Amino acid sequence: MPTERRRVRRHRSLAARRAEDLRLLRTLLAVDPLPRADLGALSAELRPARGRPSSLTGRLRSRLRIDGRRGPRLLAAAHDLSAAEVARALDTVPALEPVPRGPARWVPVPLRGLTAPGSAAARPAEGARNRPVRPLSIRQGRLSDCWFIAVLAACEHMRPGFTASLVRPTDNGLVEVRLHTPGARWVTLSPRVPAAHRAGDRRLRPNAASLVEKAAALTYGRGSYRRIQGDFAGVALGLLTGRWCPARPVPLRLSRIEHWLAAGRPVVASTLVRPGGSFRVPREDDPHRSVAVMDGHVYVVRRVARLSEDGSPDPHGPLRVHVHNPLGGTEGEPRRTDLFLSAAQLRRTFISVNVGPRLR
């Protein structure tokens, strides 16, 4: 009985705290002139660095008399706002969005195919249950965040629908994205993304991958797209899957990579930063030709099969690994988005691989 009373008191306490968070958020939106409070960074549950007072926390405390522990919960309460309040927030509080790298112009992300869990639309029709899911097209934009986009594309390649499973819309027009920072949590944000300097589909149109990237900018990037440039694939695997997957040496045999992929584990490969920048790897079928490889870049490992260096099936040829450049772009000699490398070429090209957890 005492345990039941404690559970009831705890439930009432959480409900009261949630109501207070919503009241404070509405108070913030009603202030004129509005403070440029970075609610996105607050939603990442950041704490001021030791010895360095946070001007952000100070502004919120002086305006609304809230402390550093209550502030990080404000944006989490945004999904309880009305649609009209959300529209006002997006139009009048610029810092509700992460700071873009380029111009502050925003475009909406189509939410078709994204449904709230438990809704009638989320349940597939009888004839569509066994229909194969097509992988979402994911391409890196002009941000230097290949470490994140390549891992997201590898997870999507290994389990089609993975990216959409991380995003769910709310009733008032916002969306929630599931990340591990480090624990699993849903990050609340608006369904619009920068018009430039971001990820998207093959033609760089906004899609669910754009929203996942935005959530990373809000949390791991502390409210800025610039801060998610240049990092390690192991960090991205932690953010997306909750599993820390450190880099490991490039295997001597491609059968090892084939085993990882067959087990449903996403794999990415990283190149070393070179003083001369991008480099070339000679082709084995023609020593006078070569393929261009980006330095300091992360590639998606897609499959291992008996292929030619142009990707055509070759039953009598050696095993080759298909690696994909998430940057995409214009094809040409020697630039190729998809490379088909032998074990020797793979070791010559890449310095390490990251292998994620089983996704299927």
Rank of each mutant, 00 (worst) to 15 (best):
P117I: 09
T3L: 13
P48C: 04
E156P: 07
P117N: 10
H297S: 00
A292E: 15
T330N: 01
S119M: 04
R101S: 00
R139H: 06
R336E: 15
G71E: 14
R142G: 13
I138F: 10
L24D: 06
P33M: 00
A233M: 02
T170F: 00
S54L: 02
H180V: 03
R50M: 05
P266L: 10
V355N: 04
P94F: 03
R61S: 15
P100S: 00
K214W: 04
P48Y: 03
S144F: 08
V301T: 13
R142A: 14
L189F: 00
P182N: 00
V267W: 11
D201P: 09
V177Q: 09
R265W: 08
S210A: 11
E85P: 12
P251C: 05
G51Y: 01
P313W: 04
A89G: 11
R12H: 13
L24W: 06
M158D: 11
A196G: 10
H288Y: 04
L34S: 10
R320E: 12
A128R: 12
P2A: 13
S43A: 14
R59F: 05
G242V: 05
T241Y: 01
D32N: 07
V187W: 08
T27F: 00
A89Y: 01
A153Q: 12
R358T: 13
H316S: 15
R88C: 02
E97L: 11
R123T: 03
V177E: 05
F162A: 02
P48L: 03
R159T: 08
R52Y: 06
A87V: 06
S144C: 05
L261E: 03
V250A: 08
R105P: 02
S43V: 06
T349C: 15
E176D: 07
S54Y: 05
L319H: 09
P2S: 06
A209E: 06
N325F: 05
I149P: 04
A343W: 12
A37M: 09
L179S: 04
S270E: 13
P357T: 02
L327I: 14
W260Q: 10
S210I: 02
R70E: 03
R70M: 01
R302T: 13
V298Q: 11
A150D: 07
R280L: 06
N354C: 14
D286T: 13
G71M: 14
G277T: 10
R283P: 12
R47K: 11
P103D: 08
A116Y: 12
A87E: 12
H180G: 08
S55L: 15
P182D: 01
N354Y: 02
P334A: 09
P33Q: 01
M294V: 08
S278H: 14
P124C: 00
P182L: 01
L111V: 15
A30Q: 11
R69V: 07
L143S: 12
G332H: 04
T188D: 11
V167F: 03
S224D: 07
R283A: 09
G328L: 00
R203E: 14
G242W: 02
E97A: 07
A247F: 03
G161Q: 12
N207I: 00
R178Y: 00
R134H: 04
A164I: 12
L114H: 01
R198P: 10
R112T: 15
